[in-house]
Amino acid sequence: MTIYYTLTFMLLVAEMATFCVIVAPLPHAARKRLLRFLSESPIVAKVAYGIKIAFIFVGILFLDAFQRMLRVTAEADLAKNSGSGMQDVRSETNFAARKFYSQRNTYLTGFCLFLSLVLTRTFYILLDLIHTQEEYAKLKQETAKSSRGKIASEEQAKQIEELKKKLAASEEKVRDYDIVKKQAEQNAKEYDRLATELNAANGNVSNKKAD
């Protein structure tokens, strides 16, 4: 295996390891710290930029390997259709090796590109899930606070209603007192008038102030 296909294989192994770590059943706090580190770390950003450039070369290798596989397959079909076959075992083995290597390189580079897409999509899905869980937790806390505030406001409303009832009862008592006071004043005036008339009838002038 040439050096660039060896590097492609190492990149594929690294992708598989990263994918296993990301989808592993980690605790929520550990997964949150891991995804936040991968998404916010400047070192990871630089490494990701270099990997993106590497994937461009992997794509070129995939196209080259795919063309070689098609060419080798076409040569095999041509040899079968012509009926000439292979001259000896050595040439047949060489042809089979060429076919195997072309298919291996095609699958290697193709799986590397495909897994990169799957890994990227899975990473962003999990990152969105973490953000959604954080927003849900904040919303839950705000809802709990608002519900507690609502309960407190309901209690305050009940207290205000009770105070209003007490105030209305007090005002009713004050009105009753005013009515009784007015009646007492009217009775006193009527008593004074009757007493004055009685004294006048008896020839004695009543001096209320002197009394």
Rank of each mutant, 00 (worst) to 15 (best):
M1Q: 01
M1S: 13
T2F: 01
T2S: 15
I3L: 15
Y4A: 13
L7E: 15
T8F: 04
T8S: 12
F9A: 11
M10Y: 03
M10L: 12
L11D: 08
L12A: 03
L12S: 11
V13P: 02
E15A: 00
A17N: 04
V21W: 12
I22R: 12
V23K: 05
V23A: 02
P25H: 01
P25D: 15
P25F: 10
L26T: 03
P27G: 02
H28L: 06
K32R: 00
L34K: 01
R36I: 05
L38T: 11
L38V: 14
S39A: 11
V44S: 13
V44F: 14
K46H: 13
Y49Q: 07
I53V: 02
V58N: 03
G59C: 09
I60L: 15
F66D: 08
M69Q: 12
M69E: 14
L70S: 10
T73K: 06
A74R: 11
L78C: 13
A79N: 14
A79G: 00
N81M: 09
S82M: 12
S84I: 08
G85C: 11
Q87E: 15
D88S: 12
R90G: 05
E92P: 00
T93A: 08
T93C: 10
T93D: 13
N94F: 10
F95A: 09
A96C: 05
A97N: 07
A97D: 09
R98C: 06
R98M: 08
Y101D: 06
Y101F: 08
S102W: 04
T106N: 00
L108C: 09
G110E: 00
F111L: 10
F114C: 05
S116L: 04
S116E: 02
V118S: 10
T120D: 00
I125P: 01
L127R: 10
L127H: 03
L129N: 10
L129M: 12
I130E: 07
H131F: 14
H131L: 15
E134A: 08
E135S: 14
L139A: 14
L139P: 00
K140C: 10
Q141T: 09
E142L: 00
E142Q: 02
A144W: 05
K145R: 13
S146D: 04
S147E: 08
R148N: 07
R148Y: 01
K150W: 10
S153G: 06
Q156G: 02
Q159H: 07
E161C: 02
E161D: 09
E162Y: 13
L163P: 04
K164G: 13
K165L: 15
K166Q: 10
K166G: 01
A168T: 11
A168I: 01
E171V: 03
K173L: 09
R175P: 06
R175C: 08
Y177W: 01
D178A: 01
V180M: 09
K181H: 06
K181S: 10
A184Y: 06
A184F: 05
Q186G: 04
N187D: 09
A188K: 13
K189Q: 11
E190I: 03
D192E: 13
D192L: 12
R193K: 15
L194E: 06
A195E: 10
A195S: 14
A195I: 15
E197C: 01
A200H: 05
A201F: 15
N202T: 04
N202G: 08
G203R: 04
S206C: 07
N207Y: 02
K208L: 12
K209V: 05
A210S: 04
D211H: 01
